[in-house]
Design a protein around this nucleic acid. Structure first.
Length: 261
DNA sequence: ATGCCTCAGCTCCTGAGA
């Protein structure tokens, strides 16, 4: 079973990339579940048919201009929820479903802008609510796959220049403390589990030729319940997707699990 | 140059992203 996450920065612009990527992956082990962030589409504009034509089921939750999330799945999507249950939010940031007995959560974490801003305070409240909700979910029997654009680096290995970016957004102690709280629920970082010392990034700024100079961050993550630890076979960041014409600023991340389906 | 690039929208500039 292969799970993936990708912040596409406008599905309207990136739809051809996503379809091409799904089809290219299908040459090996196909993607079973893909969660998307920053679709930037209201639900009436979601390109549902394109995914249905490839044999995928879909669930989506969007809004105009900003945010917007979706789940694309080869298997039935059961018990779909939009946003963090129990947290009032006027932004479309989370969609979750049960897929083959796994509680899949696709999330677009708030950016936070800068530690002094109101947006950072919102990010802290949002993270608090997410952790509370995921903790409640973890008390149930289903293992969890929390995937998406976290907008948080776990540690300095995830940062191209940890000295220059120390204490800046995505790298603050407060954000990383929330990341640790999520792990403490009983989740592990699939990429780091398989690549303990590799400095690899999932996002590069469009500006300053950041991709060419590999000035990036690893902020897109797949956290899995520890019950799945022995089943993890591979986890990679597909940097090639960032090399395409008109790419998203994020690369997709996928994990292969030794589970039927 | 966080004035750098990209995207959406009450679109020819502005706000936001990270």
């Amino acid at each position: 079973m292969k799970l993936a996450t990708w912040n596409v920065n406008s599905l309207n612009v990136r739809l051809p990339h996503v379809l091409e990527w799904l089809q290219a992956q299908a040459a090996g082990d196909e993607i079973d579940v893909l969660v998307l962030q920053e679709t930037k589409l209201t639900d009436d504009k979601f390109p549902a048919q394109a995914f249905l034509d490839l044999g995928y089921e879909i669930a989506f939750f969007g809004q105009k201009t900003y945010n917007g999330v979706a789940i694309i799945s080869k298997h039935p999507l059961l018990d779909v929820h939009k946003n963090i249950v129990g947290f009032e939010d006027d932004m479309a940031r989370v969609i979750s479903a049960s897929v083959l007995g796994i509680r899949v959560i696709g999330a677009y974490f708030p950016n936070g802008q800068s530690p002094e801003s109101d947006k950072f305070a919102y990010k802290m409240r949002w993270l608090e609510a997410l952790t509370h909700w995921v903790r409640a979910l973890s008390a149930q029997s289903e293992p969890i796959a929390l995937m998406g654009d976290f907008n948080i680096t776990w540690d300095d290995l995830d940062v191209w220049d940890p000295v220059e970016l120390a204490g800046s957004i995505h790298c603050t102690d407060e954000e990383r403390a929330h990341f640790k709280n999520l792990l403490d629920i009983g989740l592990f970082d699939a990429f780091r589990q398989l690549h303990p010392t590799e400095k690899k990034f999932s996002w590069w700024d469009y500006r300053e030729a950041a991709f060419r100079r590999n000035k990036g961050l690893r902020i897109d993550h797949i956290l899995l319940s520890t019950a799945l630890k022995d089943q993890v076979q591979a986890c990679e960041i597909d940097k090639d997707a960032r090399k395409k014409e008109r790419p998203s600023d994020h690369a997709p991340v996928w994990v292969q699990l030794d589970i039927n389906g």
